[in-house]
Amino acid sequence: MNKAAIRFLGVGLFLAGAAFQIHLMVGENDQAKGDITPQAYKQAQTELKNVKNQLAQLQLDLDNAQQEQTASETEKKVETADTASNEATNSVLHIQSGMTSRDISTSLEQAGIIQNKQDFEDYLIAQDLSSKIQIGQFELNSTMTIKQIAEIITK
Score class of each variant (00 low, 15 high):
V26P: 09
E121F: 13
Q45P: 13
Q43S: 05
V92N: 00
T83C: 09
Q45D: 11
E75D: 05
E28M: 12
Y41G: 03
T83G: 13
Q115A: 15
I36K: 15
F8G: 07
I104F: 01
A81M: 14
N53E: 13
T106D: 15
K3M: 10
L60W: 06
A16I: 13
Q110A: 07
E87P: 11
L55A: 15
A16L: 12
F120S: 02
N53P: 13
K42Q: 14
Q39H: 12
R102S: 11
L9K: 10
V78R: 02
Q118E: 04
N86A: 13
L62S: 03
N86I: 06
E28D: 12
A111Q: 03
S105G: 02
L13M: 10
Y123E: 00
A40V: 03
E28C: 09
L62W: 06
T74Q: 11
D63V: 12
T46S: 07
N53F: 04
L13R: 07
I95M: 01
G12N: 02
I95L: 00
E47T: 05
E75P: 15
A88V: 14
D122C: 03
S105K: 04
A81P: 03
L124C: 02
Q39T: 07
D122A: 07
A4N: 10
L13H: 10
N29P: 10
Q115T: 11
K117P: 02
S72R: 09
A111K: 11
K52A: 14
L55I: 15
T37L: 02
L15R: 11
A56G: 06
K33A: 14
S107R: 02
A44C: 05
F120A: 01
A71W: 07
S107M: 04
A65V: 05
P38N: 06
S85D: 14
A32P: 01
G98M: 02
Q69L: 14
D30K: 09
Q110C: 01
A32D: 05
Q59I: 06
A18Y: 07
T106I: 02
T83E: 15
